[in-house]
């Protein structure tokens, strides 16, 4: 974030409040949806989708990721790849394993 002029920074601050309202709204939505009788798959999908949007807003705006430097992106890309491997590797390890079907 390299907003220099006072006006730019003030505009930036207004953006933060908009994001705050969006985050609150999304939280209400995700709680509301949990009271609907969705199938397990659908419920997981919606909850994760909303969480990802919220996470994206926090990372993108509050943490200034939208306008961040290349080095940071490279590091985060690497991390995300390994995060995905870590998330799915152990669970996939069970496919066709002995003792389960």
């Amino acid at each position: 974030m390299t907003g220099h002029s006072v006006e730019e920074i003030k505009q930036e601050a207004r953006k933060y409040w908009v994001v705050f309202v969006a985050l609150v709204a999304l939280t209400v939505i995700t709680v509301g949806v949990s009271y609907l009788d969705l199938s397990t798959g659908m419920a997981v999908f919606v909850a994760l989708l909303v969480a990802c949007v919220k996470g994206g807003l926090v990372a993108g705006v509050f943490m200034h990721l939208i306008s961040e430097r290349q080095a940071i992106f490279a590091i985060l890309l690497l991390t995300v790849i390994f995060f995905v491997v870590l998330m799915f590797g152990p669970t996939f390890g069970r496919i066709g394993s002995v003792g389960t079907s």
């Binding site: 491997v85 590797g89 390890g93 069970r94 496919i95 066709g96 394993s97 003792g99």
Partner: peptide
């Protein structure tokens, strides 16, 4: 090196595909 770890686990009953 991050995607080879389960070669330590061939004999754990892990599936053959993996």
């Amino acid at each position: 090196s991050f995607i080879v770890w389960a070669h330590h686990m061939f004999l754990t009953g892990m599936g053959t595909t993996i």
